[in-house]
């Protein structure tokens, strides 16, 4: 099962700060819910795990991450990840292009992500219909964590300009919150259902 996701998240903080964070693969991984870098093979190769818990199913993907390219001129990071669930029932691969683009003001920017994801095995068979929704939720959590990390690493930036509450610290290395994720997926599904009817 293959699908593509394209997302743009507004970031509180300068594009320099965001770009600095984006180049640090370990920190980026830390923002990914359930993800951990377990080993740094060399400058562009890492090993890591991603755990996802969905109801009774607990999947731990172990895999390799390769930094396929860092382009400072366009502030673009190219990551290629490939992994398999430790129980051997699912496989996943991802090709991610993430870039930092300037925002409306010097103190804000945008994180633009475009990724192609391919999923095999049980995750595709059982989770196929939830995949879009789950990915959406994971990415939103990621963006929140990333924004908080940008704000933390660059305290000078007026992160709370818009009157936002400080974001919670990133949920490093923990499993995705199963209940919250489940709730978000169900809510999304309902929205999708009624959204479609409304626009038809």
């Amino acid at each position: 099962m293959k699908f593509s996701v394209e997302k743009t998240f507004p970031m509180p903080g300068s594009s320099e700060a965001a770009w600095a964070l984006l180049q640090n693969v370990e920190d980026v991984a830390g923002c990914m819910p359930g993800a951990t870098i377990t080993e740094r093979v060399d400058d562009s190769h890492y090993k890591g795990t991603v755990s996802v818990k969905l109801g009774p199913a607990s999947l731990v993907f172990k895999g390799d991450i390769e930094v396929a390219g860092i382009d400072a001129a366009t502030r673009t990071l190219h990551l290629v990840g490939k992994g398999a669930d430790a129980t051997g029932t699912s496989g996943a691969s991802m090709d991610l292009l993430a870039s930092v683009q300037s925002g409306d003001s010097p103190a804000s920017c945008q994180l633009v992500g475009k990724s192609d994801v391919s999923v095999s095995g049980k995750a595709a068979t059982f989770g196929g219909r939830m995949m879009g929704s789950v990915t959406e939720q994971i990415l939103q959590q990621f963006a929140r964590n990333f924004a908080a990390e940008v704000a933390r690493q660059a305290p000078a930036a007026p992160a709370q300009e818009a009157g936002e509450k400080p974001a919670p610290p990133p949920a490093k290395g923990r499993e995705l919150n199963a209940f919250a994720l489940f709730w978000a997926v169900v809510r999304d599904w309902f929205r999708h259902l009624f959204g479609r009817r409304g626009s038809a």
Partner: peptide, 12 residues
């Protein structure tokens, strides 16, 4: 699907 995942393999 194109990757060869069978998508009808449960009674769901």
């Amino acid at each position: 699907d194109e990757q060869g995942n069978v998508l009808g393999g449960t009674l769901l």
